[in-house]
Design a protein around this nucleic acid. Structure first.
Length: 187
DNA sequence: CACCCGATTATCT
DNA sequence: GATAATCGGGTGT
């Protein structure tokens, strides 16, 4: 499965889309170079959720979360790292997005090792800031429509059986820890 | 305009 | 397993 995803896919419950993004392939094209990996960890953030950037209203930084679904939202955190989100929400929700937390590298592994300055395959894209570094994603990759082929998009990838998906509290936040909105593929 | 803190990572032990 | 590093944005003065 290597074709892109319908925009309607992202116009559903943010939590549902976060779960269904597992197994999809994230593709980054830089000229003739193609880098990709299978999404194996996501987190959902939506408007009525204190942990969501958009919870306290629209600002220049988070406005993408209120914008069209199926587009990228990139933010800078801890003074060092970029994190990649995909805008997704049901029509009744004002904002929402899904943090892509980890990939299993597929194509362009040699290029990723150079970008990361590290050899260990396990460490290449196993964190939100790590995968953006490996795929060379920064603020200039914000606002891209990831439902059509371009410099950044998502393909169908592989099917993940429901029994292989684990739901847990989200990482690195202090509120709403009762919400099991982090999804990972069991190893 | 100053202060505070964060959806993290690398680099130790 | 623990901790320092690091700086842009949000919030309030």
């Amino acid at each position: 499965m290597n074709h892109t995803i319908n925009p309607e896919f992202f116009q559903r419950s943010t939590v549902l889309v976060a779960r269904e993004l597992l197994g999809k392939r994230l593709v980054r094209k830089i000229g003739a170079l193609r880098l990709s990996g299978i999404i194996v960890e996501t987190e959902a953030y939506q408007a009525d959720d204190p942990a969501c950037h958009a919870y306290r209203g629209k600002t220049p930084r988070n406005q993408m979360l209120f914008g069209p679904v199926g587009h990228s939202y990139v933010y800078f955190i801890y003074g060092n790292h970029f994190c990649l989100n995909i805008v997704a929400r049901e029509p009744s929700m004002i904002s929402g997005g899904i943090l892509i937390r980890a990939l299993v590298p597929e194509e362009g592994i040699a290029e990723m090792r150079i970008a990361r300055n590290i050899d260990d395959l396990q460490q290449l894209t196993n964190g939100p800031g790590k995968l953006t570094q490996a795929l060379q994603i920064s603020r200039s990759e914000e606002g891209i429509n990831i439902t059509q082929p371009g410099s950044l998009y998502i393909e169908h990838g592989v099917i993940i059986a429901p029994e292989n998906i684990l739901a847990t509290p989200r990482i690195g936040i202090t509120t709403a820890q009762d919400k099991l909105w982090r999804f990972v593929i069991k190893k």
